Amino acid sequence: MSDIDVRFSPSTAQDAGSFRLIELPPELCQLIESTMNAPSHAQSTLCVKGSIAEDAVLCTADKTYALRSVQLSNTLLVTTPSRTDSGRAVNVRDQIHEVLELAPSVPKLHKLPMFLKGAQYDEGDEDRRVTLVKYTYDQALSEIQASEAEFQRGLKEKRILVLDGYLRPIVPTHLSTILELILSYMVTLSLSYQAAGVEELVSTLADEHEIPREVSGQIISWFGPVKEGLWEMDVKAVVAEIGLEILRHYKHEPIMESEFLSKWKNKIGDTFEAFLALELLTGNYLRSQDNSGGAALTYFPASGLQVDPAARFTELFLTKQRWKSNDIEPFLSDIAVNSKERDKLLLKYARAITTPEGTWYTSRVGYNN
């Protein structure tokens, strides 16, 4: 093996800090390798997102990865061949003391509601002049730390319409009303919830209730797949959304479980009563016993809690000193990538106690309720 001279490049000072090494997880290596020789239209796009005040993330088409700096025990040298001594010398361009590690992350969708305050879509918006906060789909996609697939899924889960290119969260009461009408017309028009004609539904809603086709069409797509003009309704999701709107009115004062279930049944009608189950609303309520031994429900949505894990656990343990395993887990699903990550959070912020009733979690820190 021939000797090679290592020299410091004249541009070393200028290049210092210009290079970064990223350690790719296996799935990203496979993604990049699979598209290296693919046509340009089929190549994957990787992008880094994050403002100055945020930790950067790397997004693929459908996943988000947190970027973490890891210090190296040995210094790595970035070198390039010498232009004057080709093959016999290399120039040191930079010294690297850290690598960027990629770890799967939940998409950072929590900023969307804040950006969209004042942009809500409600009944009658077409008939009156409404001054709106205008936030476009493209603008949000570029600023929100999420892949496009996760971003689109977030719009669906947060019930955000895209109208004329702008994002419009639909007011929950209006959404619930539209869903109740849909359930009613499914029965009146003798439509199968497994294959309902979308055109017939959106036309009826437009003609009878002046609901824009663009609005009803998007709402239908939120609650089940549409193929060749036929909608396979996710009945449980529709029923859950209607129940959630009832529950929202009991944030400060609880409602007896029996009374709540009665209201819920009246809203969805006899045809879909078999799909009703309190478990559909898991992660959105607290259940307690009153003095007479009956159960009461209080609206307590996971979506309204802090996204920072430490702050999330503080809120949870200030609300209840002890949580059953099955009760606390739904309130952690949106801040943990998977069950393994969720268990790590529980190990870090909570103390497990095993009893004949099952596993309970209490705080590792004392709080005054």
Rank of each mutant, 00 (worst) to 15 (best):
P113F: 00
A140N: 08
G197Q: 09
T173A: 15
I4A: 03
G217I: 04
S203K: 12
R312M: 01
K111S: 05
S11I: 12
Q152M: 10
K324G: 05
Q289D: 11
E241Q: 15
L109Y: 00
E210G: 02
A42E: 15
G304T: 01
Y166T: 10
L205A: 05
L183Y: 00
T131M: 12
K348D: 08
V162I: 05
P169Y: 04
D85R: 12
W323H: 04
K108S: 07
Y299M: 01
S363Q: 09
T173M: 14
Q30A: 08
E228M: 06
E329T: 15
A42G: 03
L345K: 03
S292W: 08
T271L: 05
K63S: 07
L181A: 09
F223Y: 07
V337L: 09
A146T: 06
A310F: 08
N284D: 07
R248D: 00
N37G: 13
A16D: 12
A295G: 08
G217T: 02
N326K: 14
Y185F: 02
G197F: 01
I32N: 09
Y135I: 07
D290P: 06
E357G: 08
D327F: 04
V226E: 03
L21N: 03
D343Y: 06
R129I: 13
V337D: 02
A140D: 02
S203D: 14
A38W: 10
S2W: 14
V215E: 04
L281H: 10
A195G: 14
F260R: 12
E232D: 05
D270F: 09
